[in-house]
Amino acid sequence: MPLTTTRELIAQAATDGVGLAALNVLHVETAEAIAAGAEAAGRGAVLQISENCVRFHGGLAPIAAAAAAVAEASSAPLSLHLDHAQDPALATEALRLGFSSVMIDAATLPWEENVALTRRVVAEGHAAGAVVEAEIGEIGGKDGAHAPGVRTDPDEAARFAEATGVDLLAVAVGSSHAMTERTAALDLDLVRAIAAVVPVPLVLHGSSGVPDDLLVRAVAAGMRKINISTQLNKVFTAAVRSRLDDDPALVDSRKYLGAGRTAMAGEVERLVRLLASTGVDR
């Protein structure tokens, strides 16, 4: 079906009282896995392309075109989102390419600079009809700048949302990027406190390190968009490694990448269903 928009997916998730799975694309096989998993779960998802992914591919346009083609060939409602862009020019390019949402990550900047840059991207995004996400209280694990103990202040988050006009707000409540063990301890009381004063949907980054039960409770507490990457990468890579171990003479990359894609699709389906278990599907 045609690409849907992140705005539509977020609105539907809010209506249903569920979490929206926002899943990172690394290459075309992972985009295909996300589409297949979402189809099997019978719900929509966000295909996210990060600045790191753009750097790996040497540019945004080719991987964006591939992800869009996969989404348009899918029966699941899927949107395209630019994740963790620190370069505003990349956000501009994504909007030009038809992304329905972008994240500008200026959380490492001083407050005034973060607000100013975010407001600039929000204005540009809204002019293009897109949703803009930003971050306050840097999520742990990015460039080693913050430990997982960093927390977002609810009042500061509310002031930031008002000052910038942002549509989605990523907050720090105990998760950390790139965790390979699912041992993060979320502060659910803080999630509730932030959700009570911030008028826009909240985003949980670093969700791969959060156990299943806490993901469900975080959604119930007020988190709406749930970003997951490392957990899917783990499953994909484990399947590739197993396939190569089983057949050391294997040289056809389609056969081991296919194994990774199949395994990841299964995990996508499981996670999409899990995030929907707090609302209409419960």
Rank of each mutant, 00 (worst) to 15 (best):
Val268Trp: 12
Ser207Val: 00
Ala73Cys: 08
Arg217Cys: 01
Ala157Glu: 00
Ala69Arg: 13
Thr230Lys: 02
Phe160Lys: 01
Thr6Asp: 07
Ala31Val: 13
Thr6Val: 13
Tyr256Asn: 08
Glu124His: 10
Asp83Lys: 02
Thr180Val: 14
Ala31Gln: 09
Ala128Cys: 08
Gly260Trp: 03
Leu95Phe: 04
Asn233Trp: 15
Ala22Val: 03
Ser242Val: 13
Gly129Ser: 08
Leu190Ala: 01
Arg55Cys: 06
Gly59Tyr: 08
Gln12Glu: 13
Phe99Met: 05
Val272Pro: 12
Ala116Thr: 09
Asp246Thr: 11
Val272Glu: 08
Ser229Glu: 14
Thr230Tyr: 02
Ala127Asp: 15
Asn227Glu: 09
Asp246Asn: 11
Ser175Lys: 00
Phe56Thr: 12
Pro201Arg: 01
Ile104Thr: 09
Arg254Ala: 15
Asp155Thr: 14
Thr4Asp: 11
Gly98Gln: 05
Ala69Leu: 11
Ala36Glu: 09
Ala193Arg: 15
Thr237Cys: 14
Asp213Leu: 00
His126Phe: 02
Ala158Thr: 10
Ala76His: 04
Gln86Val: 15
Asn233Ile: 10
Met223Thr: 06
Leu274Ala: 05
Thr180Gln: 14
Thr183Asp: 12
Asn233Gly: 11
His177Thr: 04
Leu214Glu: 12
Leu215Pro: 05
Phe160Leu: 02
Ala61Glu: 14
Leu47Cys: 07
Leu78Cys: 03
Asp187Val: 03
Thr237His: 14
Gly144Ala: 10
Leu109Thr: 03
Val280Arg: 15
Ala185Trp: 08
Glu267Met: 07
Ala157Asn: 00
Ala276Phe: 14
Arg243Ala: 12
Trp111Met: 06
Ala130Gly: 01
Val171Leu: 06
Thr164Asp: 12
Leu20Asp: 02
Ser207Leu: 00
Val197Lys: 13
Val166Leu: 08
His126Val: 01
Val70Asn: 09
Gln12Arg: 12
Glu51Val: 05
Thr30Trp: 05
Val272Asn: 07
Val122Asp: 06
Thr152Tyr: 01
Gly165Leu: 03
Val171Lys: 08
Val198Gln: 14
Gly137Ile: 01
Ala69Lys: 15
Arg7Asn: 15
Ala89His: 14
Leu274Trp: 04
Leu47Pro: 06
Ala89Gly: 13
Glu156Arg: 10
Gly98Ala: 05
Ala123Glu: 13
Pro248Trp: 04
Arg182Thr: 09
Glu162Gln: 12
Ser100Thr: 14
Leu9Asn: 10
Leu168Tyr: 03
Ala218Arg: 00
Leu271Thr: 15
Val121Phe: 10
Gly129Ala: 08
Ala263Trp: 06
Ala14Trp: 15
Val121Gln: 09
Pro148Arg: 12
Ile228Arg: 05
Ser75Asn: 14
Val70Gly: 10
Val102Gln: 02
Ser175Cys: 02
Leu257Asp: 08
Arg261Gly: 13
Gly17Ala: 02
Ser75Met: 12
Thr278Asn: 05
Ile139Ala: 00
Ala172Glu: 01
His84Ile: 07
Gly129Asp: 07
Asn227Trp: 07
Gly222Asp: 02
Val150Leu: 13
Arg243Gln: 10
Glu124Pro: 07
Asp187Ser: 05
Leu186Ile: 13
Val200Glu: 03
Pro248Cys: 05
Ala21Arg: 03
